[in-house]
Amino acid sequence: MVAWDAVSIGALLLMGAILLVLVLQCLGLRELWKVALDFKRDVRRARIWEMENRELRSALRAEKAHIEQLQRKLLILQELLPTDG
């Protein structure tokens, strides 16, 4: 029975080593999962910022066009005013 006890203890130690490797793999995968979730969140934020920037650039173009229009109207009004001289 001593040989069977040695085999049982060896098998138990081997299963313990396998369990340890599996736990370490699980911790590594958990870290990878966390990195993947962080990446997904960062991509979402980048898309939101990109949309906001696009909207702001569009609003800025509209404001510049409005300013140009007001400047043209101002020039027309200045030309209509009589000049003293």
Rank of each mutant, 00 (worst) to 15 (best):
D42E: 15
R57E: 11
R47I: 06
L81K: 07
S58M: 11
V43Y: 06
M51V: 13
R47Q: 13
Q25A: 15
M51R: 15
A17Y: 07
V23E: 13
A17W: 08
G85H: 08
V2C: 00
I9A: 06
W49R: 14
L37G: 04
E63M: 05
Q78I: 00
L24V: 05
I67V: 15
V21D: 10
M15H: 06
A3W: 02
V43C: 05
L27Y: 09
R47S: 09
K64T: 00
R41G: 06
R61L: 10
A11I: 00
L22G: 15
L12M: 10
E55T: 04
L24R: 03
E68N: 04
I48V: 13
E63D: 04
S58D: 12
R47A: 13
A11T: 02
Q25G: 13
R57H: 02
A36T: 06
S8N: 10
G28T: 09
R57V: 02
L70Y: 03
M15F: 10
G10Q: 09
M15G: 02
L19Y: 08
L56H: 03
R30A: 11
I18H: 01
L81S: 02
M15A: 15
V43Q: 12
T83H: 06
Q71S: 02
L77N: 07
R54F: 01
A59H: 07
A46R: 06
V43W: 06
A59Q: 14
K64P: 00
R30Y: 12
K34D: 08
P82G: 01
K34L: 11
A17E: 09
H66G: 09
R30V: 08
V23W: 08
M15D: 06
D5Q: 05
L75R: 15
L60I: 10
C26H: 14
G10D: 12
L29I: 06
H66M: 07
G28C: 07
E50D: 15
L22K: 10
A62H: 03
A59T: 03
L13T: 04
L14F: 07
L75G: 11
S8G: 01
I67R: 14
H66A: 15
L24P: 00
L13P: 00
L12R: 10
A11Q: 04
P82R: 03
M51L: 14
M51C: 08
V35F: 11
A6W: 05
R45Y: 09
Q25D: 09
R30D: 14
L12G: 11
R61P: 00
G16E: 05
L80G: 04
H66L: 12
L75F: 08
L32T: 11
G16Y: 03
G85Y: 09
K73F: 04
Q25S: 13
S58K: 14
H66W: 09
Q69H: 10
A6G: 00
F39P: 00
L80F: 01
L75M: 11
I76R: 11
V7L: 13
A6V: 06
L22T: 12
L70R: 08
A65F: 01
S8K: 14
V35H: 12
H66C: 07
S58P: 00
R57T: 01
Q25M: 11
L70C: 01
R41D: 12
L12D: 13
A65V: 01
R44G: 05
A36M: 12
K64S: 01
G16W: 03
V2R: 12
P82S: 02
E55Y: 02
V2F: 10
L20P: 00
A46C: 05
H66I: 02
D84V: 12
A36I: 08
L20Y: 07
W4D: 07
L74D: 09
V7T: 05
M1L: 10
